[in-house]
Design a binder for these strands. Structure first.
Length: 409
RNA sequence: CUGGGUGUAGCACAGUUGGUAGCGCGCGACGUUUGGGACGUCGAGGUCGCAGGUUCAAGUCCUGUCACCCAGACCA
């Protein structure tokens, strides 16, 4: 991408309504634009980050046999009424609107009901199971208070996976596969070493749910972890009774803030029963489908990663999610010409700062945008037949011969 | 929802006892610059969140309303 050809522009100062670090930096660097509290537009760079995160999740889920769909945002109240969740008393974050013809609609805050309802069309026998279906979908939640940049929005992008099984054993088995997939996803996103599977309050059918909590100063959750992080509890379940159950002592735990970046949950029959999702078993007896659900906040992940790795100069993206691998700057006549040539060979992976501004401004923007490598080709470096490479994360500078530059991509 | 705060140019802000709006950044033109956000000259850009009201006159005073930020409460 050529900077000259894009409409985005960096800002020296963050808008005063962006106090959160992630929102301020993502806005200044031109990744996002705020429409209103908790509602953001994703600009070319931000969209690339979102797509990179999605692709990592997609690859890992597909690898364990999941199928991707895209369900509707507009919700027919009927399936929700069967579970009681269309009620504003039951679910207080609905956005609702009216049909021109008079009926009422909801904007999906999650998708258990429509997913179950849809699959009633396709699941009728044990031969149809198991099934693992997921999507990346925009969710709407009428939060009392949106805050923290893109980390708590009224409209946000979420990956939601639902699994369907003939038995609890099969659900348990798949649940473990998702745990493994989640571990790989967090690793690939660059936050594996600071993201923990956490015990949180459960629902009707299971004692605990599991959240994935990423350590973050400004995270909204409080968690407690022991020395080797083998046991991590959300504050909501951190009590003497639970500690006794796990044979743990309170004094071995440390308190810290974290952001919930994912969760996995055994639903059992919570939604399949009221919605009548059944199958015929091998003896031709009707059985209710066992279910699990597994969420991951895509736009929140972008905010968490932005927030976590930034320094006083700007964003620092892990290579796996960075919108581009190289921020390319050409200086001087010959340097600019050679930069053009290199750009033209790998245009899809390079952000080329071809603007007619002084180098200092380009350097500052490269740091603000957090692109992993800044490559400078100038008449000076060309005298040695090399380009200068600065790694954003470490600040380390090195010289690389021009024909080896593509190794960075 | 409770408490506190803020709405003036794309961004950040100033605007005195009411008298018809200003600075910096950014933007356009020209010139000088050209490896760490350069400099000079000229210039464009505003129904002062919105709606009422008071007044000869409202960014400024009054009433209402909306939005936004922070803390709390809330949060599969």
């Amino acid at each position: 991408m050529r900077l000259k050809n894009t409409f985005i522009k960096t800002l020296r100062e963050a808008p005063k309504d962006e106090l959160a670090k992630n929102g301020a930096l993502l806005t200044r660097a031109g990744y996002i634009h705020k429409e209103m509290a908790g509602v953001y537009d994703y600009l070319p760079l931000g969209l690339r980050v979102i797509e990179n995160i999605k692709n990592i999740i997609r690859e890992e889920l597909n690898a364990i046999g999941c199928e991707e769909v895209l369900m509707s945002t507009l919700q027919n109240p009927e399936p929700w009424e069967k579970t009681g969740r269309f009620s504003d008393q039951e679910v207080d974050i609905w956005f609702k609107t009216k049909l021109a013809s008079g009926g009422e609609l909801g904007l999906a805050p999650t998708h258990e009901e429509p997913m179950v309802n849809m699959l009633k069309t396709y699941i009728s026998s044990y031969k149809d199971l198991p099934l693992y279906v997921y999507q990346f979908q925009t969710k709407f939640r009428n939060e009392l208070r949106a805050k923290s940049g893109v980390m708590r929005g009224r409209e946000f992008l979420m990956k939601d996976l639902y699994s369907f099984h003939v038995s609890e054993a099969d659900l348990d088995n798949f649940y473990e596969k998702v745990e493994d997939a989640y571990a790989r996803i967090f690793d690939r996103l660059g936050i594996g070493d600071c993201t923990y599977k956490t015990f949180a309050s459960g629902g009707i059918f299971s004692k605990y749910s599991h959240e994935y909590q990423t350590l973050l100063d400004v995270g909204e959750d409080t968690i407690y972890y022991n020395k080797d992080h083998s046991l991590v509890f959300n504050k909501e379940v951190f009590n003497d009774e639970v500690l006794a159950e796990f044979g743990a002592k309170r004094e071995d735990f440390e308190e810290t803030n974290a952001a919930e970046t994912g969760n996995i949950f055994k639903l059992m029959f919570k939604y399949s029963e009221p919605l009548g999702l059944k199958f015929s078993d091998e003896e031709n007896h009707m059985q209710t489908v066992y279910m699990g659900c597994y969420g991951m906040g895509v736009s929140r992940l972008m905010g968490v990663i932005a927030e976590k790795f930034a320094d006083n100069k700007g964003l620092i993206w892990p290579k796996s999610v960075a919108p581009f691998q190289i921020y390319l700057v050409g200086i001087g006549e010959e340097g600019t010409k050679r930069a053009e040539e290199f750009y033209n060979e790998h245009a899809d992976k390079i952000l080329f700062d071809d603007r007619d501004v002084r180098p200092g401004e380009k350097f500052a923007d490269s740091e603000l945008m957090g692109i992993p490598y800044r490559v400078v080709i100038s008449d000076k470096t060309l005298a040695d037949g090399v380009a200068e490479v600065v790694e954003r994360a470490s600040g380390e500078t090195s010289k690389i011969s021009l024909d080896k530059l593509s190794d960075l991509l």
